[in-house]
Structures are given as C-alpha cells and as structure tokens.
Design a protein around this nucleic acid. Sequence first.
DNA 1: TTGCGGCATGGTATCGATACCATTTTGATG
DNA 2: CATCAAAATGGTATCGATACCATGCCGCAA
Lengths: 339, 339
Amino acid sequence: MSKERPVGDKPEQPRRLTMADLARMAGVSPITVSRAMADSPRVHERTKARIQGLAREHGYAMNVSARNLRLRQSHTIAVLVEMTPSAERPMSGSYPLDLLGGITQELTAAGYSLLLSAGHESTPGPPRGAEGVILLGQGAGGAAVGEAEAWRLPLVVWGAVSADDPHVVVGSDNRGGGAAVARRFIELGRTRPCFLGDLAYQENAERFAGFRAELNRNGLEPLLVNQADFTTRAGSDAMRGLLASDERSRPDAVFACNDLMAIGAIQAIREFGLSIPDHITVVGYDDTALGAGMVPALTTVHQDLYQGGILLARKVLQRIHGDEVESEMMPVEIVIRES
Amino acid sequence: MSKERPVGDKPEQPRRLTMADLARMAGVSPITVSRAMADSPRVHERTKARIQGLAREHGYAMNVSARNLRLRQSHTIAVLVEMTPSAERPMSGSYPLDLLGGITQELTAAGYSLLLSAGHESTPGPPRGAEGVILLGQGAGGAAVGEAEAWRLPLVVWGAVSADDPHVVVGSDNRGGGAAVARRFIELGRTRPCFLGDLAYQENAERFAGFRAELNRNGLEPLLVNQADFTTRAGSDAMRGLLASDERSRPDAVFACNDLMAIGAIQAIREFGLSIPDHITVVGYDDTALGAGMVPALTTVHQDLYQGGILLARKVLQRIHGDEVESEMMPVEIVIRES
DNA sequence: TTGCGGCATGGTATCGATACCATTTTGATG
DNA sequence: CATCAAAATGGTATCGATACCATGCCGCAA
C-alpha cells in the first residue's frame, strides 16, 4: 500500500530516491542497503553487488543530512579566508587559492567537505556545523584567531610559525628562506646585501631574521630598508633611494620580501643604467608566475602552497580525531634564475 | 525520569544542547523553541525574548543536519573551481578569489553556505547535497560544464557570455572592453593599432571582436598578433617582433589581452628605446595590482569581479527559487593611467 | 537426527528540528 | 457574566540513514 505523504511540506519535486526505495527494489531491508552502500563485510558480496548496481543505475545519492544527523557529525571543515582589499595586506596574488587547492584535495580525499567563509561577516558563531576550522589570511596574530578559537573547534592557522604560539600553525620556513638567500649572496661573493620589506609583518620579520643571521655568520651585516608598501612602485622607490647614495656603499645584492617589490627594484636598477645581475643581483619571494615570465627571469624563493594546503587539512583532521598535533614549517627552495 | 541513551553511538562528548533542552529550561515545548528561534510571529514576544536569551546564554547552536533533513533542503551551493597549474590557463592571479569573495558575501547574506570543490576530482556525483552549482574557471566551453549539467541542478557559469549559449553565464563585457580601448586609441589619434593575445580563448576573441568592430567603424583595421602564452615574456617577445618591422608600419598603440602581456610589451618597447605613451601607448586588461603599481602605471580595463561574484550567487539562488534567469554581462571600465 | 556456532538479514528506535492539527488561554464584546 | 474569536502553545508524526539487538538459515560435529 503506497503511503500518501502525510506532511504537506513540498509536494512539488518527484522526491529523490531513498534507501527505502532501493530496499524495495532489491527485495531487502533498508538496513541492508545501508550496509551495502557502506561496503560492510556483513552483507553477502552477491547482495552487495546487486544493491550497488541498482544504486548506480538509478543514480541514487545519499541524503547527507540524514546521515550526518544519525552519525552526529557533519564531515565538514570550515575555511575562513580573510579577503581584504589587497592594497594594505601582503595577501596579494593567488596564494590563498593555491592553499585552497591543496586543502580541497586532501579533505575530499578523506570524505570531508569544505565550507568556505569570508572574514568579517556578521555571523557570530562558527560556520554552520563545521567540525574544524582552517584560518587563512592574517596568521596567528590577528583578531580572527581569537574569535575562531572561541568556537572551541579544532583550529589550524596558516601563517608564521613561532615556538611560543599556542596555536597550531602551518607556514613556510621564512627563516630558512631568508638564510638561503643569504647563502646565495655569499656564494656570489656579494658584500653589501640589503633587505626590502616591512618587518611589521611576522613573515617578513622571520625572513629578515634568517637572512641576517646567516650573513652575520659570515661577518656581514645587511642594510635594512623598511618599506611599508608591497607594490612594484614601492620597490622602485626604495631602490631609487639606495641607488642615489655613494657608489661605495651602494648595495650589490637585494633581497625583496616579495616578487612585486623585487620587480620594482629591478626596474629602478635598469633605469639607473646598471646591469642585473652583474652590478646588482636581486632575489624575490613567492615565485609568482609574473616573476618567472619576466626578462630577466626573477630569482626567487618558492613555497609549495599546494602542499601547505594539504598539510593544513591533514592537521585539522588529526585534531578532530583527537591526536596531538604540532605546528609545522614547510621547506622552501630558492629558485635560481637570471636576476 | 532521565532517559539513558539507548544508542551507544558516541558516549564521549558531553552532547551539545538541543531544542528539547532549551524547552525544558524555558518550561515550554520544543516546538515553541523552534518557532522562537525562527522568529515566528506565532510566539509571544515575551516568550520569544526569554528563549532567545537562554539560547544565547548557553551558546545554543542549532543542528543543521536535523534542520536540513526535516526541511528537505541543504541551503548549500557548490562552487566548482577549475584550478589548473597556472602556466597554461589565463586563470592567473587572484581573480577566482575575488569572485569567491562576492559569492560568499551574497550567499551568506541569504543564509546559504558555500561548498568548495576543486575540478578534476574523482567524485562522480555533484558535491554532497548542494542545491545549486556555480562553475568557475573554464567558462561555458569546457568539459566541466557538461558534467555539471548532468547533475540536473541549477547551474551558473562564469565566462564569456554569448547569445547562443544555453547556459546561464555571467561574465564581463569583453566586447565592450575591447571597444572602449579602441575608442581610447582613436581619441589619441593613433592609426596603427595592434592586438596581442590568443583568440582560442573565447574571452579574448570577444575582446578582439569589440576592439576591431569599433576600429572598423572609424576606418581602421587592427593588426592581430596571435600569441599563445599569457606571460610577460610572451608579451615582450611579441612586441620585439613588431618593433623589428619597418618604422612606417610599426604599431603606435597596443592592446594586450591581459596585464601581464602588456607589462612585457612595455618592457620591450622601453628596451628598444621608444617612449611610453608618446611613441606607443599600451593598454592591458584585468587591472591587476601589479599593473597599477608599475612605472609607468598601466592603463587597463577594469572588471569588478567582486560584483560578478554577487551576481553569480544571486542568479543561482533565483534559479533555485524557480525563477527564469538570463545570462548577464558585467560592465567594464577603462582605467586610464600613464601608459 | 539433534544441537550449535557463525553468517546473512530484518525490526525497531533514534538522531534533532519542524509541519500539521489540536488544545488551551487570552481578551473583547453583548 | 457568558460567549466567541483570536492568540499562544503543545502533541505527534515525520524527514532518511544507521546502531542495537534479534531472528532465520546454513553447515558441521556428535
């Protein structure tokens, strides 16, 4: 006897297939269908195959809400991205997108979904039903961290890794990147290295720290140009200032805290009539497509952001499963090109 | 009598607050709590306030799965992003991220969540439980569209808008952008315009079409340099080729299909010893931060991607509500700077 | 033939929120 | 004070999938 729908909620749709429907078709009970779909060993292979076949044939899609309700879980991770206008933050370029790629890959592989939220929303609570949170954008220093932490959910942050930070942070090895650049300069025999960038940002501070430490080990002290902006224009301006000085004290090696500034610096140097890399060598950071396509191709520090995303995802999942998780630094690699 | 949990699923957690709990605390029935939380007019203001107060005080968070199950909806939109390695596709930069920003804003405002998926996953079906799909990345031409369409869900695509396309597409007015650049060149009195870009991409083809049509109306015919790559290097190379030709036929105005190529072209022109914009004027497309920060600052065509995201979101929601929806072109605007 | 362990499967209750319909309460008017 | 409409609230069933426990069935040893 076909049951009329006693609840008149939405009589429009033809009502999607349920496990009960499949069960009727296969001549088994709903619970058996459930087991078959979960590939449980408690169902005979023959039955299982038949049911799975039927499911595929009729395009059965499981109702996630029902499953999640029964299982008391959502299989969902929230990713919060602080998307700010671009001018003020170093969050230029597609870097969050690369991270997202890695996160997506790892989460979907684990059967989880990714719920995206933008920062500064009016929602007071955590994104609906998320089991964990990944925070992208302003590192472990910003206000968003505190807010996210208040939700009492497993939290992982992308940013600058520091030992005394209580959060689980994944970030690239900024210090190591700086050191690698320093080593490169030393190999090239440069003696008047210079750093361009704003130390107010934790990441830049780390890069400079690594850079300086390595130089000091070799008896050198870098010149620091604290430049607040992140644009090519900022790079040019800063560089022009340096070039104006006495030839004897003029830098012969410039480490810019990102590719944009490095490109600006290169422009200024060439306009000034000096050659790259003969007179001055320039190294950037980020390995953007832009720097790679330039003439001369930019030497830069590459961070594998996709891999970073994978790591972030893996760590939230581990925290959800109750494992202890530590912060981690991604190795970076200096890509030597023409500058 | 306190009920023991008959099902021994997960005895660990302290079990989150439910409406029934709130109901007990407030001395009302669960259904009243439900109404109060939904701000229904069927509950006395006094009661409503009391219940909402309790909820806030105890940090009550509604179980989304249960709600969605009962309501037969998920309040979730899937966003598919075709994230490809970057070298080959024009999807450079942060443009999908800007779109995502707009989408997020509009969806969360409407009480919907955004489920992010990366392209080329092994998942055969639509993202779990989504009510609609937004496709970002390869426009209405790629393979992903067909796949997404097979899911029978309301679908909206970002890409090149064309009249004969059966899909709902949102994209910027590429043709209009091209025309605007043409008008600019004509205003400046240029007579030998040139277009740099790969017409294999629908968007570029549109830009060229608009550019050419407007020039033709003024008795001019643009030179087309079909360049397959999208990098600055490609821009330089193409430009060097043009500069090598006879001075009489050398272009005096270059429209590059994106900012990167425009920048490359500018580099080549300056290396060649010509001045910008006196000898040759250059216009890009996209209005990236990069072009804006350059010296000389790049004149370019700006598209409001954030607004585009809002539009995409709005259209899926409309389709979900059963409204007829048409494709739409976003207006673009030429930003005149120094090049 | 009888008894028993193990495998395959089914019945029933449950996750938490909400629609439908019923019931109680309130307020207003004759 | 009685009567009735409107307002406020509650009981019960339900969304779809799954955990627990029970049952039916098989073959094999005694």
